[in-house]
Design a protein around this nucleic acid. Sequence first.
RNA 1: GGGCGCAUAGCUCAGUUGGCUAGAGCGCUGCCCUUACAAGGCAGAUGUCGGGGGUUCGAGUCCCUCUGCGCCCACCA
Length: 873
Amino acid sequence: MVHPRVPEKPSLEGLEARWGEAWEAAGTYRFDRTAERPDVFSIDTPPPTVSGSLHVGHIFSYTHTDTVARYQRMRGKAVFYPMGWDDNGLPTERRVENFYGVRCDPAVPYVEGYVPPAKAAKKRQDFDAISRRNFVDLCEELTGTDEQVFEDLFRLIGLSVDWSLGYTTVSQRTQRTSQRAFLRNLARGEAYSAEAPSLWDTTFQTAVAQAELEDRERPAAYHDLAFHRTDGGGDVVISTTRPELVVSCVALVAHPEDERYQPLFGSTVTTPVFGVEVPVRAHKLAEPDKGTGIAMICTFGDLTDVIWWRELQLDTRAVVGKDGRFAREAPEWLGTDAARSAYDQFAGKASGGAQQVMVELLTSSGELLGEPKKITHPVKFYEKGDKPLEIVTTRQWYIPNGGRSEELKSTLLARGAELSWHPDYMRHRYDNWVGGLNGDWLISRQRFFGVPIPLWYALDADGEPDHGHPLVPDEADLPIDPQSHVPAGYTADQRDRPGGFTGDPDIMDTWATSSLTPQIACGWEEDPDLFARTFPMDVRPQAHEIIRTWLFSTVVRSHYEHGTVPWANAALSGWILDPDRKKMSKSVGNVVVPTDLLEQHGADAVRYWAASGRPGTDTAFDAGQMKIGRRLAIKVLNASKFALGLGEAPADAPVTEPIDLAMLAELAGLVDEATRAFDAFDYARALQRTEDFFWRFCDDYLELVKGRAYRDDDAATSARVALRVALDTLLRLFAPFLPYVTEEVWSWCRTDEGALPGFEAPSVHRAAWPAADELRAMVGEELGADGTPSPLMVAAEVLGRIRKAKSDAKVSMRAEVATAVVTDTGDRLAALALAVDDVRDAGKVAELTTTVAPEGTELSVAVTLAEVSAAEG
RNA sequence: GGGCGCAUAGCUCAGUUGGCUAGAGCGCUGCCCUUACAAGGCAGAUGUCGGGGGUUCGAGUCCCUCUGCGCCCACCA
């Protein structure tokens, strides 16, 4: 018989380091590349943005996924669990600029062995201007160190990632995948470029997509302005928050059924101050009860203007440039000197300054009616920007996403419906977003660091690019940078020369690359064998606020490229809230540093807290929960030590005692429940139920059987076998949550001589998930099937009354009981009879008698203590 | 304006096809150095299950409605 090796004083200290190394050395979490797709569970791990600092949110949601990964591994799946690093895009670019005090200028030549300034300049304008290549070098340098810090943390928290499967979004392989996918979109006629009004961030100097917008409340004021009817019918009053845009007014618009304005449709009015003649038009988007019911259409004040402009086919009178300022020169449509000199007064100004001037002009001309009415209203911002977005006409690349096609929209809505959402109600967010799209996905960005759009354009004799027929690289040559590579049929010296070519200057949106994480991780076109074994993936775990970006864009790319959804399941995690229930975020400055937490509470304890946050639910940061987790882990150590110390039993010895059988029957029910919960990605429920059982197991069952288990007969053997099986099962159930302490205890049961029965697997994390059937087979059929009370339940209740009697009498739990008279119904007393010896042992009861009471009577136990006093329990 | 979620003990939350007297942990109170565990154990108190109405033999659970909070979405002149 194998004797377990139980330490004298079990402890949690040092488990992370010891088992972290052991797992790495043994390849415990290595993906089995020989497994076929049905036997694989593949996870589209969110690649964390490494430009930021670590915070508890990282361990929170990643732990959720890890519990599921561990469960699936124990279910016998080959778990494909890669880690990616998102080190591509604006956040990294911004961080590198500020960290080193540099900025990228593509015109600057590459410098061999460039060394950034020792101290970053205070102002961004004074940052060192360096070439794109030097800039990218610095980005890779900085992200490399960041990534190591993240990996160390994720290893410490016990993520069962296969670290050999890593990828970075800035790598050559990712760039190749990203460019290949784009070129496939282009070849199929999906990707297209167009010169069109688009949302523009004047700080970052780039176009931004609808998905990157957020509304912010800003103060503004309604200004009532007088437009003048050209038929001599008087003035038309419009109400606007942006009077400075009068110069770019191209029409007035009212609702087609608005009787007040119907007579004006088809007529013209002149604008205040500038006297430009504009038509009055009808459109159903004009709201009669907003302002005066008639609005001015400017090119472009907001997205509604764009819709009106497009659908009513109006002129374009754009005056605000990419820098957010009004054009220096008076525009040509201002026909009079007065108009031009009025314009000159705010030429070159940003919108705020221009508005001041315009209000003065309107006031002195008498065309501003009444006082401006102050309001606050939502204004569109780039989510990372500090200034309101402008709408500027630029050439950009787009991929259709249903925003301009009802047919595609319903197709993509149907894709969303194919997914299993966890929790299910999150699917509404997808439907909301897709249903509300009003433009195609803008994928080009005017930045430097990122995946270049892999195209060139032929230049005609005047040096004008032919955007209609881009020059496309061969897929075999990817990745390419059109700024340094040369298209086939051209030579380098033809770059930017008439008759030559020019490279597309833009990069792709970070989501254009992130939307391909399944393809990147699974080796699309890079490793077809791996791809066939892992794609479509099983689950995408992610935060709910990026359903509209990451999740949706991934669905779009997979739909186009593979005609399928990219995964079967979407598992959404909530946010971490600070104790005041605010979302924890860097910008608010209320984040907790996770390394300190791990140091203080231990990885299992922190995981316990994380895993008690239900899927999709925002969870308050709670150090108290970590203390409870730590206590649970210590309890696992101590209870295991105790159970293993009660003595071994032969491998094939049967469980015979009813109370032992009852415990195993209940355990089988727990296994069913935990399994069901995990299959539905409800790890929190699995943990809660397991924990619940475990505490009762310790408080009641262990106490009841300890006396018997110490003896040396068949009844003792029954207890020992039951304890061994229960411990084995509980360790497996806890393993996804508490990987360190369960592995520690598992290791006690395996010595050089061999393993205790049930502990044959080299690691609990490679052991099979418990099988309720096997437990039930041990229990047999006579128990638990009909409605008879459980001997364990009744015995535990009676023991509780005896304890209460001792507690009330203020004596030790060890105090002797002379007599205990149990009054209860017949069937419950029958159950008690099956465990009466254990109850007497545990309660130190000399004489236990029973009185049958009629149906409906509650349990009562009359306890007479041996020497001093008596008490009614 | 549309959609989704939440509201249960002082706090954090369970309560899965409606079913006996509504649960856990923390906190609080009392007791116990009990040879698995005193960074512990045992026991105890605490609730008009947000308000109102309905369906039902029976509602925390289903339906309607109201209130409050949070989030997502919106073409916000």
